[in-house]
Amino acid sequence: MVYRTGHFALLLIILEWIRPGLPSPLRPICDLRVLNHFVEEARDAEAAMRFCKEECSIAVPLTVPLSRVDFDVWEKKNTEEQAQEVQTGLWLLNTAMSSFGASITNSALHSHIDASVRNIASLKQVLRSLSIQDYVPTVGGTGETWTVSSASELFQVHINFLRGKVHLLLANAPVCQQNNR
């Protein structure tokens, strides 16, 4: 089931890119239903991890982005600063998921982690479609972070980050605002 839904989201993104018969550049993906799909998959993964005890323990705490949004601070940032914060958060989540995935042997749980890593890559493609450049943080430039020590916490941060900062960035992307006028 995880593979089917993950492939569906990826298929939507690819079809949006190739648009048969149209030689136009990558069209912006402004439909928040794509993001909602990623949130649902993260919820499924978090639910699966909740019942996993010893096998899902994290030996070394993982660094993740702070998912809490201070709306006053967020709104004072320009789009580029917001995008860098989201890109940095996605990079941190990807790194944490990959590290955690390397320690898991259960194939069912591993499939949730793989799906989450693929979804993060797909989200980066969505951001590119909105003309948001890739950003990889430099050493010490990862912004506000905290650490998690359980798989459930990792996926809860993932969900909250998607529902918070990623949602705000996508909902207010300038290219999407122009399309709504």
Results as ranks from 00 to 15, higher is better:
residue 3 Y to C: 12
residue 7 H to F: 14
residue 17 W to I: 01
residue 31 D to Q: 14
residue 11 L to D: 07
residue 30 C to Y: 02
residue 29 I to N: 06
residue 20 P to K: 04
residue 16 E to R: 13
residue 25 P to F: 01
residue 16 E to C: 09
residue 14 I to M: 09
residue 17 W to N: 04
residue 8 F to D: 07
residue 8 F to Y: 14
residue 29 I to E: 15
residue 3 Y to T: 15
residue 17 W to M: 05
residue 19 R to E: 13
residue 21 G to F: 01
residue 18 I to H: 01
residue 27 R to L: 06
residue 31 D to G: 04
residue 10 L to D: 12
residue 8 F to Q: 10
residue 22 L to Y: 09
residue 23 P to H: 10
residue 18 I to Y: 00
residue 24 S to M: 10
residue 12 L to C: 07
residue 24 S to I: 00
residue 8 F to C: 09
residue 25 P to A: 06
residue 14 I to N: 10
residue 25 P to M: 09
residue 4 R to S: 14
residue 15 L to G: 06
residue 23 P to S: 11
residue 4 R to P: 12
residue 18 I to N: 08
residue 21 G to Y: 05
residue 13 I to G: 02
residue 24 S to T: 03
residue 10 L to P: 02
residue 20 P to R: 02
residue 27 R to V: 01
residue 30 C to Q: 03
residue 23 P to D: 10
residue 8 F to M: 12
residue 21 G to K: 07
residue 4 R to Y: 15
residue 29 I to K: 06
residue 32 L to G: 04
residue 12 L to H: 03
residue 19 R to A: 12
residue 4 R to K: 15
residue 11 L to M: 05
residue 14 I to K: 13
residue 17 W to P: 02
residue 19 R to W: 09
residue 4 R to E: 14
residue 10 L to R: 13
residue 8 F to P: 05
residue 19 R to G: 06
residue 7 H to A: 06
residue 12 L to F: 05
residue 7 H to W: 12
residue 5 T to P: 03
residue 13 I to Y: 11
residue 11 L to N: 03
residue 21 G to P: 13
residue 32 L to K: 06
residue 31 D to L: 04
residue 28 P to F: 00
residue 29 I to H: 08
residue 18 I to W: 00
residue 26 L to K: 02
residue 16 E to Q: 12
residue 26 L to S: 05
residue 20 P to I: 00
residue 20 P to N: 04
residue 20 P to G: 03
residue 17 W to F: 06
residue 31 D to E: 15
residue 28 P to V: 00
residue 13 I to D: 07
residue 28 P to H: 02
residue 6 G to F: 07
residue 26 L to P: 05
residue 7 H to M: 11
residue 17 W to V: 01
residue 15 L to M: 10
residue 32 L to N: 10
residue 28 P to N: 04
residue 20 P to A: 04
residue 19 R to K: 15
residue 10 L to K: 12
residue 30 C to F: 00
residue 10 L to I: 08
residue 22 L to M: 13
residue 18 I to A: 01
residue 14 I to E: 11
residue 13 I to E: 11
residue 31 D to R: 03
residue 31 D to S: 07
residue 30 C to T: 00
residue 10 L to V: 07
residue 6 G to Y: 11
residue 7 H to E: 07
residue 8 F to T: 06
residue 9 A to E: 13
residue 21 G to W: 04
residue 15 L to T: 02
residue 19 R to F: 06
residue 15 L to W: 07
residue 26 L to E: 09
residue 8 F to G: 06
residue 13 I to Q: 05
residue 31 D to I: 03
residue 22 L to T: 10
residue 18 I to F: 02
residue 16 E to P: 02
residue 29 I to V: 14
residue 5 T to R: 12
residue 7 H to T: 02
residue 7 H to S: 12
residue 12 L to D: 01
residue 32 L to I: 12
residue 4 R to G: 14
residue 4 R to V: 14
residue 31 D to N: 15
residue 18 I to K: 08
residue 10 L to C: 06
residue 23 P to G: 07
residue 30 C to H: 01
residue 14 I to D: 15
residue 5 T to E: 13
residue 21 G to N: 14
residue 27 R to N: 04
residue 30 C to N: 03
residue 17 W to R: 07
residue 11 L to V: 08
residue 3 Y to G: 15
residue 19 R to Y: 09
residue 27 R to C: 04
residue 12 L to P: 01
residue 3 Y to I: 13
residue 20 P to Y: 00
